[in-house]
Structures are given as C-alpha cells and as structure tokens.
Design a protein around this nucleic acid. Structure first.
Lengths: 336, 336
DNA sequence: GCAGGTGCTGTTAGCGATAACACATACCAC
DNA sequence: GTGGTATGTGTTATCGCTAACAGCACCTGC
C-alpha cells in the first residue's frame, strides 16, 4: 500500500503538504496542489484510516449490537441507524449476540478495543453488565428496545406495557376471558413489561386474576411452539393467545396448525411486532406495531448529540408509542 | 483511556514487559506477570486495537457488502459469514448498498481506507469497477451471489440458470405455455441467468419462442407490482408468473390481489429464493431455494484461505445447486 | 575459566498520519 | 525601513503499540 511518504516523494514536496492537500486544511499553492493530486492519482493513493484514527483519537465508527439480526424488527432498526450514520459521516459495525450475554460481553470488549466512538446496544438479558463496562470506559452508549435495571443511560424503546395493554384490551373487548401470553425470558424488560400490560388489561375484566396464563420462554420459534403446546394442554384451554414477538407467533402457529385449530374461529392470535410493509401479501395477524425504524434513528440521534457534546449530562429516555392494528387473526370467542 | 504506558508505570516495569504479558509472547517472570496483571485489573486497561493494527498491518476484520440487508436471503448469508468469521477470530463490517453503484463505490473506498483484510461483495449492477478497485489495491476479494463480467475473481453463487430452468420446466410440465418472468435489472447476472434458464425451459415446449414474456425491473416490491400489472395487461394474459426474487413476488402478489385473481386457480406463481424455515407458518409458494447460509460460509472460507496464503493463484468459482420445492402456488392452468 | 545457552528486561525505532511550531517569502501600511 | 499580516512549506514530535536488538544474570559443560 502506498503511503503519504510515497506521494510526497513523487510530488517532490513534504508529507505535510500532501496532508494539507488531502484534508484541504492550511495553505497549499495551486502548483503544489496540482503536483500532489497528480501523484495521488498516479499511485492510487488512499489514506490509512488506522493511522488517522490513532492520531485523531476518533474512529468515526459506531456499533450497533442486536440480539437477533434475522428478526426484521432489528433489521428495520438497523436501517434507521445506518441512514442516520451515513448522514453524519459515520460507519456502523453490526454485531449479533443471539441473545447470549457471553457473546455480548465478548463483542463489547472488541468494540472498546477498536475504539468505536459510541455503542447502540440491545442488551441480551436484563443485567446491565455490558452497559457498566462501557460506561466505566467513558464510552457513549444508548440502550435500545429494552430497559436495564439500576443503570442510568440514554435509552430508546417502544412502549411495551401500553402496547400489550391495548391488544389485550382488544381481546377482552371481543369477549375473551381466558388469554395466554407467550413471552420471552423473565429478566428481559420487553418480556416483563408486556406481561405487566397484559395483567393490567386482564385485571379490568377479571379482578380475581384467574383468567390468564403467563408462559415465559425465549424469543424464538422453537420456544413459541413449546409454549403454545403447553398452553393448549391446560385444563381450561385459552380462547386467545398473545405472542410477545414474531418468532414466538410463528412457533405458536405451527402448534395450532398441528392441532388443527382454525384462526380466528377456534382461537384468536395477537402478536407484538408487525412485519415490514411489503413483506406479507395479505397481512393476517392482529398486531401491536412498534416504530422500529424510528427507534433506530432516534437512538442514533441521541448518540450523535452526545458525541457532538450537545447532550445534557443526565440520561435521556425516549419511549415511542406502539400502534394496535386489528386484522383477521382475532375474533370473538366461540360461544359454548 | 489508559495506555500500555500507564500500566507499565503502575506496575513498575517497561512497556515491553507489559506487552509481553498481554500477548503471552517472549519471556516474563511470574512476579512481573503478577504485577502487570494487577495493574491491568486496577486500571481496567484494554489495548488500543488501532495502534496494534497499524503496527501489525492487519485488522482482523473483513467486510460483507450486500445490496439489501432487509432481504432474508442476504441476512442468512450474513449469518453464515459471521459464524465463520467468529471461528477464525475475525470481526465483520456489514455494508448495505441498496443496489446503488455509487453507494457501493463509497463503501469500497471506506473499506480500503480502514484497511480491512478482505472483502466479500455482492456487487450492485454488473460492472466490475468495485472489484477492480479492490484488486488493484491488492485487497483479497470474493464476489457473492452474482457474477461480474470480464473480471477474474473468486466467486460463490447459487446456480441461477439451472434453478430457473427447473422451476419453469415444472410449470411447462403442468401445461403452462404462457409464462411471464418478472426479474431484476438487465445488467445483473442473477437477473439475466434466470432469464436464460427460463428461455431454455420454454424453448423445449415452444421452439418458436412466442410463449414467453420477459420483464426487467428492480429486485424490489414496487417493481414487482408494476411488472405484474404490465404483464397482466398483455393481450395474451400469462397463466403463470415466475418472480425472480422474494420482493418481486410480494409486489406481484399485491397486483394479483387487486385484480382478484386466485392462486393457483386463476394463475400460478413461482419464486426464486425461499424464506428461512420458521418464517412462514404454512409455506405456500413454489420456490427455487438457494443454500444462502452455505453461500456465506463458502465465501468466507475462500477468503480466509486466501488470507492464510493457502489459496491457489488463480480465481476459484463455487456454484452451489438450487433446489426446487413445489408447494401450493402452482397448478395446471385452467382449461379454456 | 570461559564459551554458550536460557531466562528476563529494557531501549530504540517505526507503523502512517497530523498538530504544533518554525521559517521562509511577499506584500501592505505607515 | 520597520512592523504586521497573509501565504506557503518544512521539521519535529506524538498517537499506542510491538519487532528487533542489546544487555545482563545465571547456569551448564568441558
């Protein structure tokens, strides 16, 4: 690879002059400029970013750590982040933890070593270890989608509680009194907040609290399947299922299919998170849609504000509203 | 941020001793080791990767440039790449060009400046400019999914031609004689190869070549919609549509829906690329499935072989077979 | 007694860029 | 002519790390 020095020699000037031409900083005579530009073209010179970054103590890179890159919810967030980063002239490193706290810790380590300027993190699990790790090293951090307990940090997420409340309210409004919620791990805020919203809505029609069934599992298809099987084996079979994310819903659907239950005639299904428009020909699921793209852009904005030194000292919290979209997977329960 | 020097001072040794302890290279007495490790813990020291990389002239980073990160075909490839990279101790930079050659060129520039060790590229468009740019700078490169003309490079892709042939063969076998193909840009190999396979299969039943309709467009939903509308306005309305990717299929479905055409009763639909398992409750589309994950791992392997100096000089080509999966979106045409 | 290892540590230089400073020259005003 | 400003260029040091070399103590073997 050619270096500044090679260019300088070929152009017959000092390295500083070349540097000044490249960065259009300081003075450089038209003749020198021309000579340097000719040399750059001839050699196909491209500056070494590593050296620059080492000198500048800035990498113009941020990282986005998500728990599952296959989930369109997170790819949509990633799109929002990338678009904001581009307009600010930043590159993005995408990292995927598969919901594993060890993977996450390993990635955080790598990101600190590579001296990214800031981190957008969807924390795996509920403990704030990674966030603390980042904070003690002075790394600007924004937590996305989930809340971590006992840690003060910028955060952006959808309103899980209100979203869950609205969809369960919709189900109770249809007459359902026996609704199962299939959700993720107990430690994760999106999981517990959705359960909280669900309980709140149920308690309005069922103050004794006997008409629900809460199943904690994982945010994936296999877990959705097994939770659905378990829910349906209960003595009082639920008349509606609320899946706390996409993949859980797919797994649950597989279970319902196997049992030859029709939706919504035999059982209603509602889901947290919609698919991006254009993904499904004829959307069928009643969902709570979160503004995923906006979660990405808002989080990136908080981070860039902080990087620019324009952010207030204390932590900021942005909770975006979710929207209930009623489609064909929910209906009144069968009278019996 | 603390540096080697800080650690050295606190431990009362030279920076080289600290470096040796960190890298477990060379000799270091147990006492020195202990002192250094204590100092590292106390300061929470983490080495500066930039400085290391600058010194080592290696970043242990590869880049994956794709044209559309929202497409599950590419996220699946990304998963394969990431998994291989992890086992080799490499980080991955994901870049998204949205099928734009300018975006691509800009990213390639950034990647060269950041001195990634190698690039996996799904080229936007068919010209090999980006590949040439990389090659003239000695950057190991593997081209994925698409073929670039007139450029010698390692490449890994699915067999578009054979895949298209098999699905169109399936349609002609059902009795279809008027099949429209909705595909991507003319310059892109996946687009033209699929058309070639389509023509080959059609020519067997229709040597005159009058029973087809080829529409070039973009690999996205909007284009799928408009191509389908145009195809259906033709004098001889096609009895089957072959969509050259997922998004085109979704767009086409929207058009068919609007026209109240039933599938497969009124019109058959076949698609290139399947969705990952667990994504759809009850898969409906007849598809040609490419081994996306494997495309990712094979491409990463070619790259790592080259990085290790174990690859032969000349370019290598891996063409992976695609698989026809017949489902419910195709049937014999209506007799009329 | 000394050559030749082994174990351990430190010094120096350099990866490729740039900030800071120094040093020219030219031109203006007074 | 002197001081001040604008323009243009080069030298030096440094970002944080590590390869290469040098040095020293200690031991082994003949």
């Amino acid at each position: 690879m050619t270096t500044l020095n090679d260019v300088a020699k070929l152009a017959g000037v000092s390295t500083m002059t070349v540097s000044r031409v490249i960065n259009s900083s300081g003075y450089a005579s038209p003749e020198a400029r021309a000579k340097v530009e000719r040399a750059i073209d001839e050699l196909g010179y491209m500056p070494n970013g590593l050296a620059r970054q080492l000198r500048a103590k800035r990498t113009k890179t941020i990282a986005l750590v998500v728990t599952d890159i296959r989930n369109p919810f997170f790819t949509t967030i990633a799109g929002g982040v990338e678009d904001m980063a581009r307009t600010h002239g930043y590159a993005v490193m995408f990292c995927n933890t598969y919901e594993s706290e060890e993977e996450e810790a390993a990635y955080i380590r790598v990101l600190i070593e590579r001296r990214v300027d800031g981190v957008l993190l969807v924390p795996a699990g509920g403990a704030g270890n990674s966030v603390l790790m980042l904070q003690t090293r002075g790394m600007p951090t924004v937590v996305l989608d989930r809340h971590v307990r006992d840690v003060e940090t910028d955060e952006v997420r959808g309103d899980s509680r209100a979203g869950a409340y609205s969809v369960v309210r919709h189900l109770t409004g249809l007459g359902h009194r026996n609704i199962a919620i299939l959700t993720g791990p107990e430690g994760v805020s999106t999981s517990t907040d959705r359960v909280a919203g669900y309980r709140e809505a149920l308690s309005e029609v069922c103050p004794g609290g006997e008409c629900g069934q809460v199943l904690f599992g994982e945010f994936n298809e296999a877990s959705g399947y097994s939770m659905a099987r378990r829910a349906l084996e209960a003595d009082r079979r639920p008349t509606a299922i609320f899946a706390a994310n996409n993949f859980i819903a797919y797994g649950a659907m597989r279970a319902l299919h196997e049992l030859e239950l029709r939706i919504p005639e035999d059982i209603s299904v509602a889901v947290f998170d919609d698919l991006p428009p254009g993904w499904v020909v004829d959307p069928f699921f009643t969902v709570v849609a979160q503004p995923a793209y906006q979660i990405g852009t808002e989080a990136a904005n908080l981070l860039f504000e902080r990087l620019a030194g324009e952010a207030p000292e204390g932590p900021r919290s942005i909770i975006l509203p979710s929207e209930l979209i009623v489609r064909r997977s929910t209906a009144a329960p069968r009278p019996d």
